[in-house]
């Protein structure tokens, strides 16, 4: 009998609302930190299309596959052809080689995380919940950093695990490779922080997703092109300093400074600038972009 009642209520023309009795909630209210954590996880899942339609998984998973493919193929070849020569990839040059994929990922997914909330005005609901305006931007930034980290860490992990497994003496290789573990973890982070911050700072500026994606691609491509042209067209100090225009080079210089060896495919390692210059640039870029995100969300209308 009880089970039939909701149905009856639904069918009647006027009493469309069936009342099971509103119950008050006396349980815990976890407050601001829980709200920020919820937003972080929600955004991280969204960065990979998790819990969304199949269509929104195509870009992040496709780019992840592209980022992984060279590492996986190189590992497979060295497993099948034991003495087939040195792999073209190392922990030092891999991320810089796939930097175009990182740029595309940031351009596609940073707007995915923030544009819709502005366009659909979901922001006014977020801001009327248990967090501060700046928390929104920082939770989104955290999610974006972790997403780019996952994208870059995954192939490094494949190189790492692969080089252990294909070795003739696995235990010995494990010992050797453990020395590289800090580099395998820290190098992706050195790329993830400035790229995510820069991308999100641009995406936060417009509710239009397509504009944001275009602007981020433009910044990465134009900066790389300008740095490339200046590097070719000028001589001496100017050629060296012009490389700072490209944030990918800055990140690679920072990687060279902090972990690992020079990567001679990157102008940072080839040039004559002290590496700390790239470290300072990466730091300033990350800080300025974070400040821009916080500034934007403190002021945006909601």
């Amino acid at each position: 009998m009880t089970a039939r009642e909701p149905l009856a209520a639904r069918e009647s023309a006027t009493g469309a609302i069936y009342d099971l009795g509103y119950r008050a909630y006396d349980g815990p209210r976890l407050g601001r930190s829980a709200a920020v954590a919820t937003l972080f996880w929600h955004s991280l899942r969204a960065a990979f299309g998790w819990g969304r339609s199949g269509r929104s998984k195509i870009v992040p998973w496709g780019l992840t596959a592209f980022a992984l493919a060279p590492a996986a193929i190189a590992t497979a070849i060295s497993a099948l052809v034991p003495f087939g020569g040195a792999s073209p990839f190392s922990y030092d040059n891999y991320i810089f080689q796939i930097s175009i994929i990182l740029a595309l990922f940031v351009a596609a997914q940073a707007p995915e995380l923030v544009s819709g909330d502005q366009r659909n005005r979901v922001l006014s609901l977020y801001f009327s919940h248990a967090l501060e305006r700046a928390d929104y931007g920082l939770a989104k930034l955290g999610a974006m950093i972790v997403a780019v980290f996952i994208l870059t860490f995954a192939p490094m992990l494949v190189l790492f695990v692969g080089s252990i497994l294909v070795a003739t003496d696995v235990a010995d290789a494990l010992g050797d490779q453990l020395e590289n573990l800090p580099q395998v973890i820290v190098a992706p982070l050195i790329y993830a922080v400035p790229l995510a911050a820069l991308g999100l700072a641009i995406a936060a500026w417009t509710p239009r997703r397509a504009y944001a994606t275009g602007a981020i691609i433009a910044v990465f491509i134009v900066s790389a092109a300008v740095a490339g042209i200046l590097g070719e067209a000028t001589r001496g100090r100017l050629a060296d300093w012009s490389q700072l225009v490209n944030p990918m080079v800055a990140a690679d210089g920072t990687r060279d400074l902090l972990v690992g060896e020079p990567n001679f495919e990157s102008p940072a390692s080839r040039g004559n600038l002290d590496l700390w210059v790239f470290g300072v640039e990466t730091l300033l870029l990350s800080a300025a972009a974070t400040a821009a995100i916080v500034w934007r969300y403190r002021r945006v209308a909601a």
Binding site: R29, G31, N120, R121, L125, S128, A130
Partner: peptide, 21 residues
């Protein structure tokens, strides 16, 4: 004390505020 207040307040804005997807 914004966050403390907002834990206990429900708000229905006059404009659209829902994500379509």
């Amino acid at each position: 004390q914004g966050p403390e207040i907002r834990q206990f307040v429900g708000y229905l804005p006059e404009h659209d505020c829902l994500p379509p997807d």
